[in-house]
Amino acid sequence: MTTDTMSTTRTRRGALELVAAMGLSGTLGVFVLESGASSFNVVFFRCVFGALALTGYCLFRGYLRNTGLTRRTLALAALGGVFIVFNWVLLFSAYGRTSISVATVVYHTQPFYVVLLGVPFFRTGLDRHRVGWIVVAFVGVLLVADVSTADLTGGSGYLLGVGQALLAALLYAFATVIAKYLTIRPELTALIQVLVGIVLLLPFTRLGDTAGIDARWGWLVGLGVIHTCVMYILLYSSYQKLTTDRIAVLSFVYPAVAILVDFAVYGHRIGPLQMLGVPLIVAAGLGVNLGLRLLPGGRRPAPERHTPAPAPVPAGQEVRR
């Protein structure tokens, strides 16, 4: 097999892995809502079952030997876990206040926060093109939020859900920035973060509320095993095989699947005005990640030197460029 053929095969496999990971991400909201548990309880048990599954996987692969952990990396991974865990709590709460579709699309503003945080933390440039794309994205957010819909669905509760999705995206961006300073395996980072989540959320978790959920335990187990362990493995494996531009494009499978699943399962559909906002956010996301020029004149901006943040999971390993 020639080098070119091997490279093509590797890229195709990475693309399939990333599409699978994004597809799983799109079903996340159904598992959360069908569990019937509060957002704190859902995240707590996601961390518990995710920790069990990730521990088994790391033991099987030998990742718990020679981990390379230092006090600094452990502290950074734990801090990232704090941001990740509360990002989940806010996003899951937003599902119930708005809808899976609206919360997911608004949450997909993560890359723009990462770009903004890159200015003080990594001294990356923020030219007029990137500023323009960020403005386009938040115009899209305003359209997706659709105040008229908020009036119909309870006003402040709906808008609070939109705000929770935006804040969840910001917390995820902080976790992404922290991950840039980590040199340990991403699976190990994820394990540390869910372990932190167990300790952090235990005081907020109402264990007594789980007495009557019966068969709905399956949804909570699925969140830990499928949407944490399996999805992480697929996601990080794909990052090693794909370039940043491919990741940026394929990441939008996530909100697309979420919108389709929300309609298929719950009959929720986004309105005409909201439909205008979705492509604005998608186009802005691609523009920022691919370094596309928005305004006339000037040089084409270079793409950001970071891995896009496509899904509600901790950022991890650097990708091949």
Rank of each mutant, 00 (worst) to 15 (best):
L18C: 10
L24V: 13
Y254P: 00
G277Y: 01
F31A: 14
A215Y: 13
G271N: 14
G56R: 14
R321E: 14
A165G: 11
G285M: 12
G155F: 09
R305D: 12
Y158I: 02
G132V: 10
G298A: 07
G218R: 08
V253A: 08
Y158M: 02
S99T: 15
V261D: 09
V136L: 13
G36A: 07
G197F: 02
V257E: 10
G285S: 13
M231S: 09
G316M: 06
Q164E: 14
Y113T: 11
T3A: 04
G118C: 08
A248C: 13
V131A: 10
L33Q: 13
P279C: 13
T153E: 09
F174L: 13
P186A: 13
A284S: 15
L59T: 03
L33W: 02
N87E: 12
P255H: 02
D209F: 11
V42R: 01
T73Y: 09
I233M: 10
V162A: 06
L79G: 13
F122V: 08
V105A: 05
Y254A: 02
L59W: 09
T176L: 06
V147P: 02
S7Q: 12
R321N: 15
T73F: 11
G197E: 01
L273Q: 02
T98S: 13
L143E: 02
V313W: 06
V82F: 15
G267M: 09
V89E: 12
S7T: 10
G81L: 10
D151H: 04
G316L: 08
V249K: 12
N41I: 06
V114D: 03
V230Q: 03
V139C: 12
A77P: 05
L170D: 00
G267A: 11
F31P: 03
G26Y: 05
L234N: 05
M1A: 07
Y172D: 01
L116R: 04
G68Q: 05
V19R: 00
R12T: 14
F252D: 03
I178D: 00
S238G: 12
T9G: 08
R320Q: 15
T104P: 05
R46S: 06
L160I: 10
T3D: 01
G197H: 05
F263H: 12
T183A: 15
L242I: 07
L18G: 07
Y113F: 15
Y113R: 09
E17M: 14
D214L: 09
T243E: 12
L16C: 12
T228I: 06
V43R: 02
T9M: 14
L260H: 05
S238C: 12
E187A: 11
M231L: 14
I184W: 03
